[in-house]
Design a protein around this nucleic acid. Sequence first.
DNA 1: ATTGAAATTGATAAGCTCTCTCAAAATGAT
DNA 2: ATCATTTTGAGAGAGCTTATCAATTTCAAT
Lengths: 144, 144
Amino acid sequence: MANKHVKEMEALKEHLGKHQLKVTRQRELILSAFLRQEHITAEAMYHQLAKSDPHLGLATIYRTLNLFCDAGLAQARHFGTQTQYDNISHKGHHDHLICTDCGKIVEFENCDIERLQEEVATRNGFTIKTHRLELYGLCSRCRH
Amino acid sequence: MANKHVKEMEALKEHLGKHQLKVTRQRELILSAFLRQEHITAEAMYHQLAKSDPHLGLATIYRTLNLFCDAGLAQARHFGTQTQYDNISHKGHHDHLICTDCGKIVEFENCDIERLQEEVATRNGFTIKTHRLELYGLCSRCRH
DNA sequence: ATTGAAATTGATAAGCTCTCTCAAAATGAT
DNA sequence: ATCATTTTGAGAGAGCTTATCAATTTCAAT
């Protein structure tokens, strides 16, 4: 538990170093909490961390999650009215199957789809940096 | 020009009828303006229509565009801080190639990708209703 | 054509998410 | 330990979207 996520912590510190940013208690705390999630909203993280750290500000959470995006550890995704911050530190990238009824989210990766995306992009003169694929529907439990 | 979009107008009226909603001047006006676009924001439509109809309220535009989504004529897509309403009346659905530099948007369709999506969904017990695929990168002009 | 219940509109207030502001605190190179 | 620089927390503010509500419009039934 203690020495989990060492690699990601190093990645963050490298990013901080390169940009004249500082290592702070809050950044380490938020990163370690973030890495335990697949994806989370700033608000949810705020409430989660409030239990152990009541004075951690919501603005700091937002700032820090956006920092993680810059550092390549997270990826922002607009879902409904809120922004979900996806943990992309272990898997390079993942797409989502989202149940429109119960909100369940299943992550997946598919190389064939990614390859076809590259084809489409090339055909249109684009160079892809990232992508977002979300499939909306009903999960097995909600379909009946 | 006058009798364009008759099919879509019928589709809207069918939806209205089924839900005890009424046919209004505003709904017809907004639909006919909307169908001339590939995609548009509520704000942009507000300004566009203000020229010919200065008293059309922004709330009405939002309400109506959301109505079009319910009716299956439009599809909302969050891009940046705003919501883009995509015209999906002619093509069943379209995906987007988005240039992160100049904001250029290219629409495309790819049956092979759609087929693979179905596969992924089935494998996970999902039944897809809609999907969203956005490829972010640089267009040929911005790449150099 | 008139009536009247129900839905819609326009204007604005309110809500929600997210960012900005700034004084106080923390960091880290010296 | 010092001190310039960055960060934080708290709340104000901004931007987009929805809720409110009196006035108006629609439309089914006269």
